[in-house]
Structure formats: C-alpha cells, structure tokens
C-alpha cells in the first residue's frame, strides 16, 4: 500500500471517529443526522483506501439514508426508561469493550496475504453476492423488506387530532 492510500486511510479514520463523537455529543436530531453522514463519509474513505470501492459506495449511500432518517422533520424523541447510573455503566462497558478489542487488534498480526482484488471490486463482490452466497443475500433482502414494511406501517398510523390541526 502506497503512502497516498495510507494517508487516505488515516484521514478517513479520523473523519469517521470525529463523526461518531459528534453523533454522540451533539444535540438536535438534524445535527446528529449530519454527524452520521460525516461518519459514513469517513467509513467510505476507509473502505476505498482498502481497495473496496463498491463497499464504499454502498456504505456511503446507507449512511446518508440513515442520516436523512434521523434528521427528518417529523422526528419524535422517545425517552429511555434506563436511569443515569445504567447509562454510565453502559459507557464504562463500551470503554472496556474498546480496551479488549484494541488488545485483540494489537495481537492481530497473525496473517499476511497478498491481495489480488482490484480497487473497486464490483464484479467480484456481485458474483459473491448473487452466485456464491445467494442465501445470505436473500436473507438480508428479506430483512430489509420486513423492516421497511414495518416502518411504513408505523408511519402510516393516524396522527392525533391536535397534531393534525396544528399541521393544517
């Protein structure tokens, strides 16, 4: 891997991390949507610098769609029932998870292989998706279908009278 790809990788990793941190601490749903789109840009850059251009395009589209979903105008906030102590415990658990995974990554120089794929890989990934692992692709397609139908049914429910009158 040449220096240009390495610089792209580290800059994209910093972008993804900054976007994630902004998504964690920014208030306002449209700001969080923008932060998620920024994270998607960083993750797509990571994938592109690792010669996974097709995956980068798909991830960028998915993150922009997630950001648009979070930033949509009829956003409703739903408070969690968990108290502050449980949330702090969860944050400590996330830190412990990072320590464990970072240690595993530090010990991860276990394999080294020559990469024969191209910089984009759409044909090879498409062949894998539709010929080699068709069942997994069908399963994900079914999951997406069920999720989108469920989301559409939830969105189509009738709104309360006061909200309808406000929107008029």
């Amino acid at each position: 891997m040449d220096s240009l790809h390495a610089i792209g990788f580290y800059v994209s990793a910093a972008l993804a991390g900054a976007g994630g941190i902004l998504a964690a601490f920014l208030g306002g749903h449209w700001r969080r949507g923008l932060a998620l789109a920024l994270t998607g840009l960083g993750v797509a850059g990571i994938y592109a610098s690792l010669s996974a251009g097709f995956a980068a395009v798909v991830v960028l589209i998915c993150f922009v769609a997630v950001g648009a979903l979070v930033a949509k105008p009829d956003y409703r906030s739903v408070e969690q029932a968990a108290g502050a102590a449980w949330r702090q415990l969860g944050a400590v658990g996330a830190a412990l998870l990072f320590i464990g995974l970072a240690y595993a990554a530090f010990r991860g120089q276990f394999a080294n292989a020559t990469f024969y794929g191209g910089p984009f890989g759409a044909v090879s990934v498409g062949r894998l998706l539709f010929a080699h692992d068709g069942v997994a692709t069908d399963a994900i397609g079914g999951l997406v279908l069920v999720a989108l139908v469920g989301a559409a049914l939830a969105w189509r429910r009738e709104r309360p009278r006061d909200e309808r009158e406000t929107r008029r």
Partner: peptide, 21 residues
C-alpha cells in the same frame, strides 16, 4: 480503527437518553 468504531457505537447506544438517538 474497527475496534474504536465498534466501541464508539456501543457508547452512543448506551449513553444517549433518547431512544432514537
């Protein structure tokens, strides 16, 4: 980097008070 992103996502899921956030 993968570990950092995974832990950051877990932190967001645990830390935010709003369910949608």
């Amino acid at each position: 980097v993968s570990a950092a992103l995974t832990a950051l996502g877990a932190f967001i899921a645990a830390w935010k008070r709003e369910l949608t956030a």
